[in-house]
Amino acid sequence: MELADSTLRPPPAVETFEREALVFLPNVSRYARLLTRDSADADDLTQETFLRAYEAWPSFRTGSDCRRWLFTICRNVYLRNRQRSQRFVAVEDPDVELIATRQMYFRAREQGCKDLFDRIDLGPALQKGLDALLPEYREVVVLIDIEDCSYAAAAAALKVPIGTVRSRLFRARRLLQQSLMEYAEDLGFLRPNQEQLSQGGTRQ
């Protein structure tokens, strides 16, 4: 936690806050967009994050990781605002996801593409894949792959069992990999997956 002992300091000069916190605006904005998938919502979330950070600045410990602290605020505000009544509940099985992930690796290996992720720019495909993920899956990717949260910390943040974090993470990564493989197919780096073609595409 990034809180200092003294909570009685006055709010900082805007210039100080601008120099030390607002410098992370591009990062927080990106983070908010990943969570909301809507630029207007992301801007509102980002603004609320910085306003709350400004109010809480006297309790922020100098020298702590400000970027992480801002991500934490952003995520908490997002989670509080989110309509939990619309939550999607899926039956997920980490073992099944692992088998599917393994099959994708075997496919890449068989086609001499073990270094697929290093060989081509997969940024656009990954962005599309993230956009297509359900919020529940995207959240775990954001927490674990951006914030470097442990599974336990992610479970606490999302208020779900650690097993749910694990299964959602595995599924999210499998779906992202699937997006990347399809992109690589489109570019001619991989031969199309006949089984998938006959089934009519991917599914969450």
């Binding site: 980002t46 603004q47 940024g123 990954l126 951006i146 990999q177």
Partner: peptide, 23 residues
Amino acid sequence: FEGAFLRTVARVIDEPCETGELR
């Protein structure tokens, strides 16, 4: 292979974006 995948994910999704008038 999977480690390279995770590095790709981390690199792409942590890129700062343009903030325009938001600042």
